[in-house]
Nucleic acid binder design. Sequence first.
RNA 1: GCGGGAAUAGCUCAGCUGGUAGAGCGUUACCUUGCCAAGGUAAAUGUCGCGAGUUCGAAUCUCGUUUCCCGCUCCA
Length: 486
Amino acid sequence: MVKQSENIMDKIVSLAKRRGFVFQSSEIYGGLNGCWDYGPLGVELLRNVKDAWWKAMTFRDNIEGLDASILMHPRVWEASGHVENFTDPMVDCKSCKARYRVDILLDELSTKKKKETLREMFPGKFEGQQKDEIIESEFAKIANDDNALRSLLSALSCPQCGNKSTFTDARKFNLMFKTFIGPMEDSSAIVYLRPETAQGIFVNFLNVQSASRQKIPFGIAQIGKAFRNEINTKNFLFRTREFEQMEMQFFVKPETDETWFEYWREQRMQWFYDLGMRKEKLQWHKHDKLAHYARNAYDIEYQFPFGWGEIEGIHNRTNFDLSRHEEFSGKSLKYFDEEAKEKYVPFIIETSAGASRSCMAFLIEAYREEEARTADGEMETRVVLKFNPKLAPIKAAIFPLVNRDGMPEIAKKIEHDLRPSFRVFYDDSGAVGRRYRRQDEVGTPFCITVDSETLENQTVTIRERDSMEQVRVAISSLKSWLSERL
RNA sequence: GCGGGAAUAGCUCAGCUGGUAGAGCGUUACCUUGCCAAGGUAAAUGUCGCGAGUUCGAAUCUCGUUUCCCGCUCCA
């Protein structure tokens, strides 16, 4: 089972490269860890995913679009908590090679164990019957002091192998990429590549609201790149250092947050269903441990060949973000509700989808290997990407059945007429059966073939990708036939 | 970051104990082709991931490094 799923990922990665969906970044230089480039078909797929999302979100009267700058004032990230919290000090056990996040390691110690450790570190100081709270707060103090933390770690034993004094020093990783504005590379010039697009929406909340004359409840949608200096990247497009997000932040009156939260949960799951994902491949994952900003959080997970993985998060962020930005900027972000005649900081329901991850999920979801009968009556494997036609990179391929009797000319004419409206592809090489299969492999939903009957009555066959069945359609109605299905 | 595996043509891979590279598929051209890939003929394509070392000679041996995959860890 595991072996087969690895196999499927390998096949998809290989197909992705071969047919121009995804290439490794800087490949001729040996590649760059965790970075990928979208090729001719990949960029179409990604665009189609983003377009579908954009239409689903912003073709509403209560959601506005935004495209905020990737570089933002550094204080934004202090307010958001990323400067402080986007850091995970970690240690390794030198003996058994286990790795721990320091905060989790310390959290899991019992108060009793903490007391013992403190006594060992400071002989004589913790001999009496200290209250638990004192132990806990002393412990927290040490955990925040780099020097004290070092001796604390050497007093602890590894939960996995039980050896003592085997921890490495805590190493801090801030997951934000840093760079500098202007010619001086000093601390006053530091800016960050945004680790999420959401903050660009939060800080523009009142700008958008007043410019668009929206009333609460309303939302702001944005698609854009985000960057995280992940410790390790993994699983093709799943965990990369540069990725694209599709976020919509919905601003609501505080008491109505739970209702809207449920509304958006339902809407977002339905979006994936509508684009062809099988229900059994999607599940909800409820966060039990909530982040500092959230009141409620669910992820939509897709069943990748390597396991369940998050493709979208729907979070109730409360008024945390706007309140923090009020605090750090000194500017009011309160909204005056004319109807309720009250002033408040709105709550935010966040829907945050990964464009890159979704794109990969749609690619994997579409990938099928089927048994198909050949002309000789033998069964052979047919590789087909069963994209929803809306997502397919190429919408239709146009073939002359054979290269004579004027068929290529008619086919070329059809291509020329359709191209302004649809992404189409012309192919006249080899046998028509081979051309069908080639299009199957990149998920083209329709193949239009000019045959001898075309010469007589101006109709062509349209072969449907999934059923492989054909219908005859008049050349004059091709455009409307396709429009209805795309 | 640790452990394991891998890296040879666009893809999948062969190349045994060192003698400067092959196959299948794909691609391109021409022919053939009358509806579901793998007919015919011809052609192009690799400094064997990168860098050192050993050697008269390295795809092959040694070391380093990069990338990918798996496991651990991590994923506010």
